[in-house]
Every structure is written in structure tokens, then in C-alpha cells.
Design a protein around this nucleic acid. Structure first.
Lengths: 197, 197
DNA sequence: ACCTGAACACCGTTCAAGT
DNA sequence: ACCTGAACACCGTTCAAGT
């Protein structure tokens, strides 16, 4: 008789364990190598067991994306902990690119879903980008950032980084060039945020 | 006895026909819906026939990517046909975003291959971006564009557009917002290209 | 040279059956 | 409630065989 009611019969928490193995499988085999059956094998359950926790494969991918956005949001919070406004914006940009380079398959998953705009994902996205969003809004209130819809400003800045990250992650930009191109891009972005006087 | 030696036994040119159907299938079913067997069915050949023309599925995807870069390069050339330098750069940026929105699955294919850096693909990429590249180099020669490695300038500009296009294509940015965000981004990019005086 | 049909190992999904 | 095993329809790849 289990003490914690959420614990399953055979495993501690199969859902969490599946997610953990799925992240590892995604990392080492890519999106194409991430199969439910391989995941079941890695986790040591029958191939039909995951369906109890994820209705279908897309539900698993959605859950991975949510977890990814949560991790990304945490790195944003850490990056924005100290320093001047420009320091923190720069640190967040750096954290974003590092996340993209360290988790290329996960990042692709997070942004390559045209379908299934789950409320859970929307909430995770909003929460993840809350830090840079409020950073920009605060900067505007103090006159240190150019005026305009902070959501749009945040979006276009992240888009520029996203493109760079995608190019680096896909091998389109060689790793040697990534750092200096990143510095250029960030300098350029921060320059664009600075109010004209 | 066929007149043209490249013509196959049963079809005019099965390779070209496969590519044609593959593009259509990719467009209507996405990357996940693009299977060799469905493609064979669409083309009216046995499921093993494509393997004569494409060693494996990746080879088909590579060929689709090459065709995509060729099409993209053509739209760049058209966009850069007339107008001032800024007009042509703006037109190329617009053409890029339009291509991205009209061919989201193809664009994802073109840039999401970490593996198989084929010479054919590298050549197609270089050729496709030759127009914006030389446009920037020309602008520098005439003092109308900020100095610096034209390849890097081209790369970071395309990356910014790529990120925006990816966000729009994935439904991350609603279609209503795409145009105005694009205008803002392009204005910002062109502003960055203008030499300080 | 080019295509077919059968074969193999894999996959996602479903569902009756077990505990 | 949770998991298993069998079943089904699909897939990529290979290969002997046909024309």
C-alpha cells in the first residue's frame, strides 16, 4: 500500500521518469530518434505504458516543450539577478544563446510546433519570457529603454537571437564564429534599445 | 528506344517527378507527413522505386533543400532588380520573409539539418545568398554601407529575419502582427547598416 | 538501366486482459 | 488505477527477380 497516492503501482512516478528519459533520449538521438517505444525501453516499461501518461506522442513533445520553457525561464532569472540594466539584458541574451547551443533539439521542439497551441505551453512561454519582458518595461519607466510596446520589443530581440541560435545549432554558422557574431548582434540590439537623445 | 537518354523506362524523368510530388507533399502534410512510401504512391510507382534516385530519405530531403535554396536565390535576384540600394535590400528582406511564410516546412528543412553537410547544399546556399552578399559589398564600396566583413553582416541580418520568420511560421507570432514587426525589424536592420557620419 | 514485390525491423496507437 | 501483450496499419531499407 503506497504512502503517496500519486505513486504508481510499479514505479515511483512513471510520468516524471518518462520525461526524464525523454529529455536524455532527445539530447542523444535528436527529434527523429525520439520514439515512444525506445523511450519505454529506456524506462523499463512496456511500449504501451507511456500512453497512460501521454495521450499520444505529440502530448509527450508538448510536455518536453513546457519543461524546456521552464528551464529557460529559470536561466533568465539567474542571468537577471545582478548588475546594471544593460548588464542584465546582455546576460539574458548570453544565457539564451547558451541554452540554444546546449539544447539544440529541445529548442527546435520548443519553437517548431505549428499545431497544438496548448494552454500549458502558452502559460510556460509567458512565464519564461516574463523576466526579459519586465526588464524592458522597467527600463522604459526609467527612461533607459526606447519607448514602444515592450512585448513587441522583447519579441523582435528574441527573434534575432533565435535566428542566430538556429544558425549555430544547425551548423550553418561555424562554432568559431558564433561568439563574435553573438557579441556583434547583442551590441547592435542593445544599441537599438537605447533611447535617442 | 527513348530519344533522350536521361528518360527512364516508365516515366519521363522519375527523379524530377518525385521531387515535384515531394514538394507538394511537404507543403500539404509537413515534414512528418513526408514519407517515401506516400511519395511513391503519389507518383504512381512502387514504394521501392525512389531508392534508385535517392539513396535514402535524407538524400531526398537534401535534394528538396537544394531546390529550396535555388528558388530562394531566384526571388532574391528578382527583388534586387531595380531601385536604390536601400530599396533593394528592403525588397530582398521582404522576399525572404514572404518565402518563409509561404514555405514554412521547406524553410525548416533548409535550415534544420545538422547532419549531411553536402557539397551540393553548400554550393546552393552560397549561390542563393550571393545577391544580398554582393549588394552589401557594393554598398560598402560606395560608402553607403557600414564597413566590415560582408559575409558576417549578411549572416547576422539574415539571422534576424530567420528568427522572425521562424516565429511567424510556427504560429508564435500571430499573422496580424507579422507585417508591422517585420517593418520594424527591417527599418532597424537598415539603420544598423547605414554608416555613422 | 530501371522498376517490382516480398521481406525485415521498426514505429504509433488501440484494446482486451491481467494485477 | 495502472500496466502488459497482442494486434493493426504504417514506415524505411534491402534485395532477388523481372522487363
Amino acid at each position: 500500500m503506497p504512502i503517496v497516492s500519486s505513486r504508481s503501482y510499479h514505479h515511483g512516478d512513471l510520468r516524471a521518469e518518462l520525461l526524464r528519459h525523454a529529455e536524455a533520449l532527445l539530447r542523444r538521438a535528436g527529434v527523429d530518434g525520439l520514439s515512444l517505444r525506445q523511450l519505454a525501453r529506456d524506462t523499463g516499461v512496456s511500449h504501451a505504458a507511456p500512453s497512460r501518461h501521454f495521450r499520444d506522442k505529440q502530448a509527450l513533445l508538448d510536455a518536453l516543450a513546457v519543461a524546456g520553457f521552464e528551464r529557460l525561464g529559470e536561466t533568465f532569472e539567474e542571468a537577471a539577478a545582478t548588475g546594471t540594466l544593460l548588464d542584465r539584458l546582455r546576460a539574458m541574451a548570453r544565457a539564451y544563446l547558451r541554452f540554444a547551443i546546449d539544447n539544440p533539439a529541445l529548442l527546435a521542439l520548443m519553437f517548431a510546433r505549428k499545431h497544438r497551441q496548448t494552454p500549458a505551453i502558452e502559460e510556460a512561454v509567458t512565464h519564461a519570457f516574463a523576466t526579459p519582458f519586465s526588464m524592458i518595461a522597467d527600463g522604459q519607466a526609467r527612461g533607459e529603454v526606447v519607448p514602444g510596446d515592450p512585448r513587441r520589443i522583447c519579441l523582435s530581440a528574441v527573434a534575432a537571437l533565435q535566428g542566430l541560435a538556429a544558425f549555430v545549432g544547425s551548423g550553418f554558422i561555424p562554432a568559431e564564429e558564433a561568439d563574435s557574431l553573438f557579441e556583434e548582434t547583442v551590441t547592435h540590439l542593445l544599441d537599438g534599445l537605447r533611447p535617442r537623445r
